[in-house]
Design a protein around this nucleic acid. Structure first.
Length: 463
DNA sequence: TTTTGAGTTGTTCGA
DNA sequence: GTCGAACAACTCAAA
């Protein structure tokens, strides 16, 4: 028997661990939920519900291959190692397959799982399925990891040789019911948050939905990606992130599909964004301190970050008095997703204008994003806060009003998410001042003063 | 080893 | 309104 432990790879298509296991013979699939860790890691309820629904789809897809999906619940990572060992013994496994995850705790857990499995005499194999190129293999001429994106991306493009899609393998001989293991529970009883029906419409589950989304994006919108991607009122981006983060679609399929679209600069620009995802995964793999709540540039942990609960609350609730920021924060809360340009604007506003610790913002995003991914979220926040790898220079502070005028010129996006401003014309909607209706707040911070404050804080940190 | 060019996503100020 | 320079100087990567 061959066991596949599913984690952030909730699909049957182009799944390296699953394919390796199937090549060896009969397969049992295993999923282990850790609700206690969801709590401490602040995973968004909308994300957990998306995962629950994708697991149901995965179960169906696997059953077509006559592969049973066994679910279990563990209190923590050591608990999941116990469950794995129980499963390997009870099912008399020959091999265990898993697709690597790259945050530090997950790497450590998998090291332990691999050695525990090998002690039981089980062949244990880890596959690099979640990223295009194995971390540790993209190095500069000095043999060091890249700290700058552009040379990293160039090297990746030179190295990248995607394997062909695996040939179709036959199903299991029969969909048996495997003997019970430690911690086993039905899929629906794994401690999921209460679902909201609107989530199902916003973020449909399953590989078919993801594949159709990718196909559609690469059939036409990708051609205009370079021109349209910065405008939140346009459908200019792929919005594939929730499916990519949960592994419902493979990164290789995204890369392949974009390459095959042959529509010029658009797909190449989009592929660069896929490489940013890659870059930040390599960064957390190479630099353990980034996984431990530290700034990539650790000397910037001594900045005089503010911890003002009221300012933070206004930011969270979309009541800062800066229309584009408030629209963006409300989009996040209402849909579980935020446009990339707006993630930069809101993150820059929190970390520079409010001078709040970027970790507060990072955490809030994780608590609300359907596509919340540690490496991408951390990388993005540290970019905005100027504490990261190849981050924005600290003096390059976005002016949210200027950004609003440039990227939501007609104010359509603001009007959609901040209805109390919908009567304002396209000039005043970005910066209503005294024209604002009574229910809309005045700006909680003076942009000019707060910009100077941030510049001074970074300047004075040099010593 | 030294040197050189380059670095996601900008803003402000003054002519 | 438009344009170029200043912002502040540092690190990375490769020649």
């Amino acid at each position: 028997m061959n066991v596949v432990w599913f984690r952030t790879d909730l699909r049957i298509e182009d799944n390296l661990a699953l394919e390796a296991a199937r090549q060896r013979g009969e397969v049992i699939a295993l999923y282990i939920a850790t609700p206690d860790q969801w709590q401490t890691h602040n995973d968004a309820p909308i994300k957990l519900d998306f995962w629950r629904r994708n697991l149901l789809e995965l179960e169906k897809a696997l059953s077509r291959l006559k592969i049973p999906l066994v679910c279990a619940q563990a209190p923590d990572y050591p608990g999941s190692i116990e469950i794995i060992c129980s499963a390997l013994s009870v099912w008399q496994a020959d091999s265990l397959h898993l697709n690597a995850e790259y945050p530090l705790n997950e790497v450590r857990r998998d090291h332990q799982v691999l050695s525990a499995a090998r002690e039981l005499g089980v062949e244990a194999v880890i596959h690099h399925d979640q990223i295009l190129i194995e971390p540790g293999s993209v190095l500069n001429n000095s043999g060091e990891p890249f700290k700058v994106f552009t040379p990293f991306s160039k090297k990746c493009r030179v190295m990248l040789q995607l394997p062909d899609r695996a040939e179709k393998l036959g199903p299991n001989s029969s969909l048996g019911v495997p003997e019970a293991i430690k911690g086993q529970k039905p899929l629906e009883e794994l401690g999921w948050p209460a679902p909201e029906s609107r989530w199902t419409d916003l973020w449909p589950a399953g590989e078919k939905a993801a594949r159709e989304k990718l196909k559609h994006f690469c059939s036409q919108p990708v051609a205009g990606y370079k021109q349209n991607r910065d405008f939140p009122a346009l459908p200019g981006t792929s919005t594939l992130s929730p499916w990519l983060t949960s592994g419902v679609i493979s990164i290789r399929d995204c890369w392949r599909e974009a390459t095959l679209s042959h529509s010029g600069e658009g797909p190449e620009t989009w592929k660069n964004e896929l490489l940013w995802r890659e870059f930040y995964k390599h960064i957390i793999f190479h630099y353990p301190h980034v996984n431990m709540n530290k700034a990539f540039r650790q000397e910037l942990d001594s900045l005089p970050w503010r911890y003002d609960e009221n300012d933070f609350k206004a930011w969270c609730e979309g009541k800062t008095g800066i229309p584009i920021v408030d629209a963006a924060m409300r989009q996040l809360k209402e849909t579980g997703w935020m446009h990339n340009r707006l993630r930069m604007i809101t993150a820059m506003f929190l970390s520079k204008n409010l001078l709040l610790d970027w970790r507060w913002g990072e955490k809030w995003f994780m608590e609300h994003l359907v596509d919340g991914d540690f490496s991408a979220n951390n990388g993005g926040w540290q970019w905005s806060a100027s504490t990261g790898t190849d981050a924005a220079p600290y003096f390059r502070i976005f002016n949210p009003i200027t950004q609003s005028q440039r990227f939501d010129a007609q104010g359509d996006f603001i009007r959609y998410f901040v209805p109390e401003l919908s009567e304002l014309d396209e000039k005043s909607i970005h910066d209503p001042g005294m024209l604002k209706p009574a229910e809309y707040p005045l700006p909680i911070v003076d942009l000019k003063m707060s910009r100077q404050r941030a510049l001074a804080a970074f300047k004075n940190n040099k010593f």
